[in-house]
Amino acid sequence: MIPAKFEYVRPSSLDEAVSALAEGGDDAKVIAGGQSLMPLLRLRLAYPDLLVDLGGLEDLRGVTDIGGDLLIGARTTHYQLVHDPLIAEHCGLLAQAAGTVADPAVRHRGTLGGSLAHADPAGDLPAVVLALNGTMIVSGPAGQREIEAADFFVDYLTTALGPGEILTGIRVPKLGNDWGYRYEKFHRTAQAWAIVGVAALARRSNGQVAEARVGLTNMGPVPIRAAAVEAAAAGADANAAALTAAAAAAAEGTNPPADLHGAPDYRSHLARVLTGRALAAAAGV
């Protein structure tokens, strides 16, 4: 990798990191796992003057049970998400989706916080955290604040993080045993990004889907909730036909991109098919 020149600091506390970032201003960037930033540096699509490495902040790593929610440190790697027992017990969707990210090397370095802060519409975890009703915990020059996932993803590669702000953790409500889940990722090779991804959660009761949540990956510049599907699925019978019917609305309100791997109409079609499959799996059909 032959990037443009940059300075590098590795603070050992969050305060130091925040002030280093604030001092660096527009030309400073946080680096966590580097799995999205380094490709940009390599291609010289990004050329920050200063990199603030979060690698020294051990507190930002790992999963804690804080009662009704799990608190996941921003530096928790994809690999940890796949293997963490608390995640497995209370929000298995995240583990399942993290297991589809890239390859083992990337999963060992890439972090949840980095995935969310990078906000790549093809990234798998933003739609998942959106479907999980997650909350971002952020520290900056003005102190700590919280941002709902629904408000966090603003545009292509753009989040609600302000200048100098660092994402420190993500809070996700624990899901009860009556919830099922499924992340359906459609991609051409195991290491490739999602052409479309669907994160589905379904709470089942008395042979019906009582409540459903669906997050869509790569169906627009930001991850979105398939609101029309959620509405149609709520109260639907838990069978393939009913859920396929509910999934017919999956592309509503989306704005899928066109690239080498798929035109928008194909993506819309995939969103419908995959949503049907994800919902069926989540509902245990």
Binding site: D103, R188, T189, A190, Q191, A192
Partner: peptide
Amino acid sequence: YLVPSAAD
């Protein structure tokens, strides 16, 4: 440019 790996 998608080069398949063993997983595919």
